[in-house]
Design a protein around this nucleic acid. Sequence first.
DNA 1: TGAATAGTGTCTTTCAGACAGTATTAG
DNA 2: CTAATACTGTCTGAAAGACACTATTCA
Lengths: 258, 258
Amino acid sequence: MDVDSWTPPPVLVAVDLVIFTLRAGRLQVLLVQRGVEPFAGARALPGGFLSHAQEDLAAAAERELAEEAGLAAGELHLEQLGVYGTPGRDPRGRVISVAYLAIAPRLPEPVPGTDAADAWWVPVEVALSEQTTLAFDHRQIIADGVERARSKLEYSALATAFCAPMFTIVELQEVYEAVWGVRLDPRNFYRKVQSVDGFIVPAGPVRKNDNGRPARLFRAGPRQALYPPMTRPPAPADQPLTTRLHAPADKVRNEHEH
Amino acid sequence: MDVDSWTPPPVLVAVDLVIFTLRAGRLQVLLVQRGVEPFAGARALPGGFLSHAQEDLAAAAERELAEEAGLAAGELHLEQLGVYGTPGRDPRGRVISVAYLAIAPRLPEPVPGTDAADAWWVPVEVALSEQTTLAFDHRQIIADGVERARSKLEYSALATAFCAPMFTIVELQEVYEAVWGVRLDPRNFYRKVQSVDGFIVPAGPVRKNDNGRPARLFRAGPRQALYPPMTRPPAPADQPLTTRLHAPADKVRNEHEH
DNA sequence: TGAATAGTGTCTTTCAGACAGTATTAG
DNA sequence: CTAATACTGTCTGAAAGACACTATTCA
């Protein structure tokens, strides 16, 4: 920035999406299969390059959300996750990727992908495991997304973004259990979540079950920042919490007991 | 990403730094005066363009830290804050800025700026007020940095990054008070901070004061994530906490009492 | 009726917040 | 001694976690 004749190096900007939802009681992420080099055949996060020089980053994220996942941006939570710009992360040249985190309520089974050859919901512990070959630095991006979601469940109302507009308290609890990878006491959860003012508000009457007492329905309340926060059990030591996802929820609890 | 002959638009990438420190019991941010258009004469965050196509983003942040603030990266906390990429934020063309948050212990009075014409520590409430003309979207970036620092004090050991390698508990308390803009009870703070395992560890004997009992010295402990977290008084409603900084610390407390 | 799921009450422990009191220095 | 700062103890109320119990549905 000192010499006047010098010009900064131009860089290509990609936007990638970490789209989470809850399916079968597990936290799942949307992955596509790359059809072209580099990393042809590997799994990757949906995303793409900025379409033109004047496109806003968030707008590009919304466009990719529609193109690659058939999701309308208005219906879901979307926030910036971070920038990934290590030189060499893309063999084609200098590409930095702006990652966005999207949270979607459970969607109809097939993902109506238009661009990508194929797209699937993959449980995060599968996506992060060795058995999945991920393009670029997408494993790191997913891991960061998991960590972001976990910590935001504590002190924000993000959990409601995983739910349909109306939901039961048990459904909300399932969000916490799946994302944190723990089991929570339904009775304490019930009391706790209702005591946080403005987190959820009663809506409609009840929802019938196949069997058992119908559950009351709620909507997301106005409060974004939760006070007091939802507390998650302490991490065993100081390592990244990502490791805990690999263990089944039932076992996680035992890790604390010695 | 569909047509093969299409190529994505190249973009210029800047790296900007939000450098916080504690001076005179207040949270202060380092600002430079721009010497060239656009926004010549306005205050701005230290920063600059990527120097060459293969420079890593974090490396660029460290380079700017050294060039513009004379700070060695090894000595301070540095983390990515976010990307700012609204079209039109830079009148020269499409520039996206990767913002980094740096936390420094109190430094010797004059800032040994080399590149920038001038650099000053400015209290954040001054920097965010109308009286300061800031270039680009740097007001927003600073506000986001303040919010990040505030929330990370709660559940991480970030506060120690504001302190010298050895510090007293009162000094640590001053960090919390300045960043949160509240007053805390020294006796409860003392007990609380010591009860969080691994947050701070005793070091050396004591530090003498001009007057009064010498204080014990501590170092940052190994624990990064605090459990249980340090709790900050609840925000009055749901608006951004930034507004609270404009009120003197003494008055903030009263806002809750009705 | 029983099985299943939803929701309540109550006890114990832990922790935040208020604040009285003790300890160690300089003068 | 007093003034000043550092540190300790103790009480109270709120909230977390464990878990017995009641409520409402379907078959």
